[in-house]
Structure formats: structure tokens, C-alpha cells
Amino acid sequence: MEHLDLQVIKQGLQWLESGRQIWLCTVLTTFGSAPRGPGSMLVAVPSGENCGSLSGGCIEDDFLDRLKLGQFAAHNQIVRYGDGGLQPTMALPCGGVLDVLVERFEPERSSIDHFRSLETALVGRDRLSRTINLKSGSRTTGPHGPTGRSVSRSGEDVTIILGPVRRLIVAGLSPVAEFCAEFALALGYEVIICDPHPERLIKASALLPNAKLIEVLPAVFIAQGGCHAATAVVALTHDPRLDDLTLMESVRTDAFYIGAMGSSKTSLKRMDRLERIAGLTTQDMQRISAPIGLHLGSKTPAEIAISVMADILRVGNGIDRAAL
């Protein structure tokens, strides 16, 4: 099944190519409880046909009703749902507040080219930034690094980051690895578990039906192009034969996060091995988070997995550890 963002962009492109005017909505900010986060998208036409989601349904219905009445004629505008928002003020069932960017696209070459560039980013390996000027109506796109928040605003410019769905490569199965995979799936990550032991994969398939399980050495999968810039790699087995090879291959990729489980003492020994045997440089080793995760006093496999995923989120969102 295609990721929802890709479905939205493909549908919008199809409508534009068929000569239809479309509206693209993007959640910019949320306050309080909200069903979906910043970057969530919906595309619609005045007839009420739509694809995507901004909330649990209440916002979509209201937006489509207003669209049919011609209330979103401007090319680019930000509207607020919730307290202090569109009149009559619409209180959301969750009690939250959402700011939504509403863009109108005409069925012309510039719009089609813009949507094609967004489609390319979503099916490719690199992230793309699109900047919308609320005053002039201009839209520009450009490459973006592997980390950073999905939405930001500076004056009249709104910048939205799109790219491939974040991927978690789990190098070898263990109790901590299983919890990491489960949490990552809940966060919307594409989860790929690589383990050369078929009996472990059979057991995990029942626990993690939405993960992709591959009977292969993790290092082999990574060496064959398994990582892109939106990939996090975690080695959580305590098996040097699996973990060390995984780290050696991972530092040769654009993965935004690479981590290995182990105590401080174990991690120092591992780094020494990687320097001596694999010839990793200081810069290479600085890319490896070891010991992995945030220091939360975690003891159980589930607690350790939470600390790991929290650190991946921190790095992915561009938050410095000192800012926590």
C-alpha cells in the first residue's frame, strides 16, 4: 500500500493533468491534542472529491463544505481550526487547534511540474523542501538534508519538507529490537528487519505483521543499497559478528542515524575494533550512537526501545541533545 502522502500527490497530479483546478491543504502547526501532525496533507476539488487526511474527519467535512461555497479563492492562505479559528468558531472534538496552509493550483504546466517534483521526492531517496510565499504566491523547491522538522515558517515564507517515508533497519532480532520495530511502526516508519536466522524471523512475523522481514545479513542488505537519507539503522543484538559488520557498512551510507546497543565499556571496545580492523575514521565513528539511545534509566527491553526511538526522533527532528 502506498504511503498516504504519495497517494495525495499522485491524485493531485492526476487532476491537474486532466485540466482540473485543485486545492492542497497541509497541516502547519498543532496545539493541544490533534489526530495528525504537521506535514499531513489533503488534496481536493470543488466537487468534494478528495484524498488524504488532516484530522479525524471533522476538519475535512468543514473544509469541503467551505470549498464548495467558494471560500478559498486565494492562492495561498493559512486558516485555523479550533479556538479562535474560522467563524463560526469550530471547536474540535479533541480540543486541539490546527493551522492549515491552503493552496490553490491551476491546471497549468508550472503546477504539474511542481507536483511531479514532489512525487519524485516521495518515491526516491532524497528529501525535498518546498517554500511557499504567502504574499507573492510563489513556490520554489530545492534539496534538503536528512534531518529537520517537516514544517517551518519565516515571515511570509512557509517551508515544507517532503521525502521518502522514514525507514528503520533493524539489524538482527532481540527483545529490544522487537519493541523498537513495534514502536517505529506506530510512528509511521517503514520497518525492515534483517536477520540471517530463519527461525527468528518466523517467530517475529507473528508479532510484527506490518514489518518487512528479510533473511539476510544486515550488512549485506545495507551494502546493496538498503539505506537512504531518511534511514535509521539500529544494531541491538550484542553479537559483534552482526553488529560490527552492520556499523561498518552503515557509515558508508547517507543514513541519518546509526546506533548500537551496549554498555559504555562494550561500546569503547567496539569502537576500538572498528578503528583497528575496519579502518573507520574519527568522523565515521562520530556518526555512531553508542551506547545507543537517550539516558532515561531504562532497564527492560521496552524501556530501552523507548530510549532508542526517542533518540532517533530527536536526531530526525534536528534537536541537539543539549537542548533536551
Rank of each mutant, 00 (worst) to 15 (best):
L128D: 00
L162F: 12
S154K: 14
S154N: 14
L187F: 01
R109H: 02
E108Q: 08
S117D: 15
L86I: 14
D83Y: 13
R104V: 00
C94I: 09
Q87H: 10
G82P: 00
S117I: 06
V158S: 08
V102E: 03
E103Q: 15
P93Q: 11
V123D: 10
H75D: 14
P143D: 11
T147V: 15
A186P: 07
R149W: 01
R127E: 02
H144I: 02
A186N: 13
E103G: 05
A186K: 15
R167K: 12
L134F: 04
P175A: 10
L92G: 01
I112V: 15
K135S: 02
V165D: 02
S174T: 14
F183R: 00
P93C: 13
Y81S: 01
N133D: 15
G95I: 08
S152T: 14
S136N: 11
G96R: 12
R166K: 00
P93V: 13
I169L: 14
R167G: 03
R153E: 14
S138I: 03
H144Y: 03
F115A: 09
Y81K: 03
D126S: 08
F115W: 14
V79C: 05
P107N: 02
P107Y: 03
G155V: 03
Q77Y: 00
G155T: 10
N76C: 12
I132D: 01
D157T: 06
G96M: 09
I161T: 14
D113T: 09
S136P: 12
S136M: 07
N133P: 04
L168H: 06
G155N: 11
T140Q: 14
A91Y: 07
G142N: 09
R127C: 04
S117Y: 05
S111I: 06
I169D: 04
P146D: 05
E182W: 05
S117R: 12
E182I: 01
I169N: 00
F105S: 10
D99W: 13
E178Y: 00
I161F: 05
L92I: 05
P107M: 01
A181S: 15
L92W: 00
E103Y: 04
L185T: 10
G124T: 05
L101I: 04
L122S: 02
G172W: 08
I132P: 00
T147D: 02
F183C: 05
N133A: 03
I169W: 06
T120C: 07
G124H: 05
F183H: 03
P146C: 00
